[in-house]
């Protein structure tokens, strides 16, 4: 894992120019053959960081999606045709993974832990008890959604607050890794604990929003 916030850049196979993304050369307008799976951050020419410039992610996504779309390669050689399909689908996977804070954090942890599995069960102390209580409260309120609209809104905002607090903590922890790389292993574990907790809160929010649609 690099901490200098710079991604390594690939060189175009056609014109030898250093490219901003390994998927496409904007200098000679050629789709690139991929031999290894590029890093998601490198695809969008972004630094390896949790606190991402979302606007830049979106702009670069649009730009690349427009160049790589398989429709433009219908008349091309079969290798290019196939490459456009593969690169487009890789581009979409990378975009989805980086756009959402939770999956972006998971992806970064995957890079930081070098594929070593992290403990997905560990939660902050007392957290599961809180979730169980919230679920019980919800269960009572969902019996009559219209009658309990206000209370439901209150639970929702409580859950959202908890989620925001966890995301804020995750953001700080990622910052700590950059400040204190020697402590990386412990910090990575703490981030994972927070992410595990976020998933339960997300689940609660989904349950609340489903009830509102009924």
């Amino acid at each position: 894992m690099k901490h200098d916030h710079l991604s390594s850049h690939s060189v175009c196979l056609g014109c030898n120019i250093t490219m901003a993304t390994p998927l496409f050369c904007f200098s000679c307008n050629s789709i690139q053959r991929l031999s290894t799976k590029p890093n998601y951050f490198e695809i969008f020419d972004l630094p390896y960081t949790y606190n991402l410039d979302i606007k830049r992610l979106e702009d670069n996504y649009q730009k690349l999606a427009a160049e790589l779309h398989p429709d433009f390669y219908l008349q091309s050689a079969s290798t290019e045709k196939r490459q456009s399909q593969e690169s487009s689908s890789l581009l979409n996977r990378a975009y989805t993974a980086l756009k959402c804070p939770m999956s972006r954090a998971s992806y970064l942890l995957e890079l930081l832990s070098h594929g070593k599995p992290l403990d997905e069960r560990k939660l902050p102390a007392g957290f599961l008890e809180d979730i169980f209580e919230l679920q019980e409260t919800l269960e009572d309120l969902l019996v009559d959604v219209e009658d309990h609209a206000e209370e439901l809104a209150a639970v929702k905002s409580d859950v959202e607050k908890r989620l925001n607090a966890l995301q804020e903590a995750v953001s700080q922890l990622f910052g700590n890794i950059e400040k204190d790389p020697s402590n990386q292993k412990n910090i990575v574990e703490s981030i994972q604990v927070n992410l595990n907790a976020e998933r339960y809160l997300q689940r609660l929010l989904e349950r609340i929003s489903r009830s509102n649609q009924v």
Partner: peptide
Amino acid sequence: LVGAPECGDVMKLQIKVEDNRIVDAKFKTF
């Protein structure tokens, strides 16, 4: 009280024990 991180499910299971034998059990699962 246990949870499934994959899907956010929570399960509470309780046992009542007499003379080392489970005489009753209750659960609640979300």
